[in-house]
Amino acid sequence: MGSKTTIEVNELKKEYNGLAAVRGISFNVARGEVFGFLGPNGAGKTTTISMLCTLLRPTSGHATVNGFDVTRDKLAVRRSIGLVFQDPSLDERLTALENLKFHAMIYGVPKADRGKRIPEVLELVELAGRQNDPVKTFSGGMKRRLELARGLLHRPKVLFLDEPTLGLDPQTRHRIWEYVKQLKIEEGISIFLTTHYMDEAENCDRIAIIDHGHIIAIDTPEELKENIGGEVIMLATKDNKKAAAEIRERFGISAVEVNGDLSLQVADGNHFMPRLIRGLETEITSISLRKPTLEDVFLKMTGRRIRDEKMEGIDQAKTRVRAKRGRSR
């Protein structure tokens, strides 16, 4: 590992008043890697990012970022990282340019370099034309892009993105991802991001799946999907409970109900499907076969979907709070 590793985490724990948010996690992130933390809201993603960025003190355990200890060498860690928070953190009364200028100053970017670097990052996120407008006139997507530019301004070696696309429209989400990929290639930096969007996690080089403060799997998206075995059969029946019991009894496979459909993972779907149809007493109303997604991986490992209805609700509430904040200023 050595210098190839930019983040090393060992048995990191965080408790709030005796309640564990992160329960002893360990992982490494390699230089130039896009590493995703995937998990539902409340799984411990933001707590982990906050500890790695020195904003939260770990209860126990150990972590280094770019070789600097996150509790003993806070300023060195902070100098070497860029950060885009889940919630906006811009000074809305200032212009885009002023926000970037002040950031460059407190990060000690030399004046001569500032003049070159600021236009460069503005160009990257396509905001050069709006640089003299107050940030309060920006849309949510523009603000996030500006924050991305700001996070990159001081040439960090690791960029932390906490739910970088939360609350953004699909077009902007897509663009944010294009920037991330471009950064990886052009600047060669490591990117550590959290998300609960499965489709976005697919873009990462490696993913850690986190749930209830535990990492339950770390691998490439391909391997994770490969490991859960073969294919996924989606099944709708007249009585899902009865069908699931039958499947467990007859084939030894556990089927999980998702939005009124039964989902089961099988090694060889093409051959299993006819057997299933023949062997099931409960009447089948529809059936389909597909390749597994990360959603299936999560479902298999935790027994639930990453974004159930309740989570969607929290998400929408967050987005609403954001919209309200934007207006009230």
């Binding site: 953190s89 811009l90 700001r150």
Partner: peptide
């Protein structure tokens, strides 16, 4: 207000004491 609008975070995570 800085805390409520998030800007405080930008300052608190900056590499300055």
């Amino acid at each position: 207000w800085d805390r409520e609008f998030g800007f405080l975070k930008e300052v608190l995570v900056a590499p300055i004491p």
